[in-house]
Amino acid sequence: MDPVEREEHLENVLQAIDRKEYLRALSEADQWLTEDPADATGYSMRALVLIRLGRFRDALEDARRARQLEPHDPQVVMVFAMAAEAENRLSWAQEAWEEAVQLSHSAPAVLREFARFMVDHRGPKPALEAARRAVEADRSNSQAWSLLAAAQLRMHQFQEAEESLKRALALDPNNVQAQALMAQYLLLRGKQNEALAISKLLQDHEQARPIVEWIQGETKKRNLERILVERALDLEARRPDPGSWRWFSLMWWVLAYTGALAVALVLDVAGIGNWIFLLVLAFLGIHLVLWALLFRG
Score class of each variant (00 low, 15 high):
L60E: 14
A40I: 13
P124Y: 05
T258K: 10
Q184A: 08
E35G: 06
N175S: 00
L111D: 07
R167L: 13
R112W: 00
R112K: 07
G259Q: 14
L60G: 00
L153T: 00
V266D: 10
A127F: 09
E218K: 07
A29Q: 06
E95P: 07
P3E: 06
W97E: 11
G190F: 06
L288W: 09
L165R: 08
V212S: 14
R64K: 14
V4A: 11
A130Y: 09
Q192K: 12
E213R: 15
L169A: 07
P240F: 04
W32E: 08
E194H: 07
S44Q: 09
E113T: 00
G217M: 05
F158W: 12
H9E: 01
R226S: 07
R64L: 11
L228I: 06
L165K: 10
V176P: 01
R112M: 13
L90D: 05
L111V: 09
L128N: 04
Q102H: 13
M182P: 00
E194L: 10
S91K: 06
S106A: 15
E206G: 12
G123C: 11
F80K: 07
M251P: 00
A100Y: 11
H121V: 00
Q179D: 00
Q192I: 08
H72Q: 15
E35P: 02
F114C: 09
A109I: 12
K220W: 02
W97V: 10
A149F: 02
L290M: 14
A25Y: 00
N12T: 11
L196C: 12
F277R: 09
F117H: 05
L171F: 09
R296H: 10
A96I: 07
L261T: 15
H205T: 04
G259N: 13
P173G: 01
M1T: 11
P74R: 11
K125H: 10
R46A: 06
H121R: 04
A115F: 06
H156T: 11
A264R: 14
G217A: 06
N88M: 00
V212I: 14
W291D: 13
L53G: 03
A150D: 03
L181Q: 02
M182I: 06
W253Y: 12
M118P: 02
A161P: 02
A144W: 03
E136A: 14
D120K: 11
R116P: 05
E163D: 08
L284H: 01
A262V: 15
S104V: 08
D234L: 03
L90P: 03
E8V: 05
